[in-house]
Simulated scan of single mutants.
Amino acid sequence: MLIDLSGKTALVTGSSGGIGLAAAKGLARAGARVVVNGRDTERVETAIRAVLDAVPGSAVSGVAADLADAAGCDRLLQAVPQTDILVNNLGIFGPKPFFEIDDATWERFFQVNVMSGVRLSRAYLPKMMEAGWGRVVFISSESGLNIPADMIHYGFTKTALLSLSRGLAKLASGTGVTVNSVLPGPTMSEGVKDMLKDMAAEKGVSIEEAGEMFVKSERPSSVLGRPATVEEVANMIVYACSKEASATSGGALRVDGGVVDSIVP
């Protein structure tokens, strides 16, 4: 399959690293004009250089804006008033015992993981529908289906994204715009690598070996038996953004390595 997104603009939130940056590179490789986003100007500029290093000659720009509140989303919308593709990738995670999660933490996770996508979709989706073509992708997680007991606040937000994307897909029915969720499982992003450092040091193993140990102990249903790479997840995101995915809408596209023990996608 040859994915060609020439002439399309793709905005990827939270793309200064991890899955977001890998998706930005993949979309640039497919010919899209890519806009990367992060909170910090320096990290955004570094991400732009990373995309250009991976895809020389690509059209890539960036916007530094913290999408954790409405003001940050407004700054991004002023800089990028229209896009053909929106990848709502921004998200935070971290284990914490349920009884120690205060209201402020619940609110922070909801604002970052859910409301950033709500605000941007509310702004961009009508223009896509009017144009007769568009792609919106929410980065959910297998944790939205397989809620981890040590990250209930995180799993809750990822479940919310599944509802949001399904509802928006129905809203955009017949317009040429598709809306989908992509559900990664454990993935070797920078954040996950940081989380695995202590385990690797304690066991005297590499980060990669610690990742396999984590999957086998904490996600024993995994068919893959290891964390995915960010590139493997990005491949699914690029497909969901493609013209070839025109009949894929309202879907929950799993890149979870088989962690969710179900024969139904």
Score class of each variant (00 low, 15 high):
Lys170Thr: 07
Gly251Ala: 15
Ala71Arg: 14
Arg166Gln: 15
Trp106Asp: 08
Ile263Phe: 11
Ile48Lys: 15
Leu27Tyr: 11
Gly26Leu: 01
Asn146Ile: 02
Ser58Val: 03
Phe93Trp: 05
Val255Lys: 01
Asn180Asp: 05
Ser15Thr: 12
Met195Cys: 00
Leu145Gly: 00
Val44Trp: 08
Gly20Asn: 02
Gly258Pro: 15
Trp133Phe: 11
Ser163Leu: 01
Pro186Lys: 02
Ala172Asn: 02
Ala10His: 09
Leu86Gly: 03
Val238Ile: 07
Glu190Leu: 13
Ala123Arg: 02
Val230Ser: 12
Gly94Lys: 00
Trp133Ala: 13
Gly185Leu: 03
Arg119Thr: 05
Gly7Thr: 06
Arg226His: 15
Val233His: 12
Glu212Asn: 11
Gly91Glu: 04
Asp102Asn: 15
Met188Leu: 12
Phe109Asp: 14
Met129Cys: 09
Leu161Val: 03
Val63Arg: 14
Val215His: 10
Gly132Thr: 11
Leu77His: 02
Ala169Tyr: 10
Ala50Trp: 14
Pro227Val: 12
Phe138Glu: 00
Ser121Phe: 08
Arg75Lys: 14
Gly117Asn: 04
Ala32Glu: 11
Asp53Val: 05
Val137Leu: 09
Ala59His: 13
Thr13Val: 03
Ser217Glu: 14
Ser181Tyr: 01
Val112Arg: 04
Val260Leu: 14
Val182Ala: 10
Lys96Thr: 11
Lys158Ile: 08
Ala24Phe: 00
Gln111Trp: 15
Val238Tyr: 01
Glu45Phe: 00
Asn89Pro: 12
Gly14Gln: 04
Ser165Gln: 04
Met129Ile: 07
Leu77Thr: 10
Leu52Asp: 15
Leu5Arg: 00
Ala247His: 12
Pro148Cys: 07
Ile237Lys: 04
Asp198His: 07
Arg219Gln: 13
Asp74Thr: 02
Val34Asp: 08
Ile19Gly: 10
Arg254Tyr: 13
Leu76Arg: 06
Leu145Ser: 08
Thr175Gly: 08
Ser246Tyr: 05
Leu224Met: 05
Val34Trp: 00
Thr157Lys: 11
Pro56Thr: 11
Ile152Glu: 01
Met151Thr: 06
Ala172His: 06
Ser140Ala: 15
Arg226Ala: 13
Thr41Asp: 14
Gly26His: 01
Asp84Thr: 00
Glu231Ala: 09
Ala149Asp: 14
Val192Ala: 01
